Amino acid sequence: MNKVGVRVLAAVAAASLIVTPVMAAPSADELKSNKAAKEQEVSSLQQQLTDLMTKLNSLEAQLVEKGEAIAQAEVDLAAAEKKEKKQYKAMKKRIKYMYEEGNATVLETLVSAESFSDLVNKAEYVQNVHDYDRDQLEEYVATKDKITTLKDTLKEEQSKLESMQEEYQAQEEQLAATIESKKAEVADLDQQIQAAAEAAAAEARAREEQERKAAEEAAASQAAQNSQPAASSNTASTANTNTASANTTSYQPAQQTTTVAQGNTAVAQMILNAAYGQLGVPYVWGGTSPGVGLDCSGLTQYCHRVAGISIPRTSGPQGGGGMAVSDPQPGDLVCYGGHVGIYIGGGQMIHAPQPGDVVRIQAVYGSPWYRRYW
């Protein structure tokens, strides 16, 4: 490459260095302002999450109510069918009695009349028997249709509520993830603020050290000029050193401690035994019958009732009561928005997951919180 080319490349390189900006690190005040903004975002998101969980709790209460209504409709339908079978048997007996030999029995009934009045009464009796059977049959059909329609309507409403619940739970998971992300950003800003504070403190110490040395040198020079004893210089040096140490500050992050409450483990074991005893029981909305059908909060309420502890019926109040714990122990409640289970240790829980499923053991998922009633 000739000299002209070398000069051109050198000029281009120099120009690129000149126009490339050097971004300064953000100041501690800028970092604090950014942190305050992030914390405000977290606060807003947490309020949204609170509102969403309120809706979930309300939905769960409605689902429990629908489940109980469906269960009652099934009981009523079974009773109607039982009544229909009884009526049918009675009608068969009457038909057999009246018609097993053609119309002879009916004719005998009418012929045996002792008077015209008796004949009319017996004829009416035969007709009434027919009318009664027909009325009873129509009543049964109407009752059965009404109960079936009610049951179908309730199930349709329940299905809609379940869809809303799934949608809210998906929103809850998304909000929770966003909040965790924002909290991580805040924590990162905390680290940056700490680093900035430590850097500022280091600069202050270095500046104070320079000032101290300059003061010592000035004092020593003044002492030499005034022919003062060395002790004066040492005294001034010591005084300056103490002053510098007093003015030097260092950033100390706040220390957080967590206290884990200790409960009655014998009671907790009773809760666990009750939970294990319901493994395989079908999930039923509104279900509170052990061994027959349970929903999530029906399971946890039953397990605590066995241990002599009364807790609310639905997961929302259950998750808001008791005592908050950060280090869960077997027997504690595993709480989510609209769901709850029994912690059994090792990162696992016993819970009633959803319709179509059964009470079973599953790994704790997501970001639950824990409550203790024992």
Rank of each mutant, 00 (worst) to 15 (best):
E124V: 14
E124M: 13
E124Y: 09
E124G: 06
E124S: 11
Y125C: 05
Y125A: 12
Y125V: 11
V126Q: 04
V126G: 00
Q127C: 03
Q127K: 12
N128G: 12
N128C: 00
V129G: 07
V129D: 10
V129S: 10
H130W: 12
D131I: 07
D131K: 06
Y132M: 13
Y132S: 13
D133M: 12
D133H: 09
R134K: 15
R134I: 14
R134V: 13
R134A: 15
R134Y: 15
D135F: 13
Q136V: 09
L137S: 13
L137G: 03
E139F: 03
Y140K: 00
Y140G: 04
Y140R: 00
Y140F: 05
Y140W: 01
V141P: 12
V141Y: 15
V141E: 15
A142H: 09
A142C: 02
A142Q: 09
A142K: 14
T143R: 04
T143Q: 08
T143I: 02
K144H: 13
K144E: 10
K144Q: 10
D145I: 01
D145G: 01
K146L: 10
K146T: 12
K146W: 08
K146P: 06
I147S: 09
I147F: 14
I147E: 14
T148L: 03
T149S: 05
T149M: 00
T149Y: 00
T149P: 00
T149I: 02
T149K: 00
L150P: 09
L150V: 05
L150M: 15
K151H: 07
K151F: 10
K151Y: 07
D152K: 11
D152T: 11
L154Y: 03
K155D: 05
E156C: 07
E156S: 15
E156P: 08
E156A: 15
E156G: 13
Q158L: 12
Q158V: 05
S159W: 03
S159V: 09
S159M: 13
K160V: 04
K160M: 02
L161V: 02
L161C: 05
L161F: 03
L161N: 04
E162C: 00
S163N: 14
M164R: 13
Q165W: 01
Q165A: 01
Q165S: 02
Q165V: 00
E166Q: 07
E166G: 07
E166S: 10
E167K: 08
E167M: 04
Y168E: 04
Q169L: 00
Q169H: 02
Q169V: 01
Q169C: 00
A170E: 05
A170G: 02
A170Q: 03
A170F: 01
Q171W: 11
Q171K: 12
E172T: 09
E172L: 07
E172N: 11
E173V: 12
E173I: 15
E173F: 15
E173A: 15
E173W: 10
E173K: 12
Q174R: 15
Q174T: 12
A176Y: 10
A176N: 14
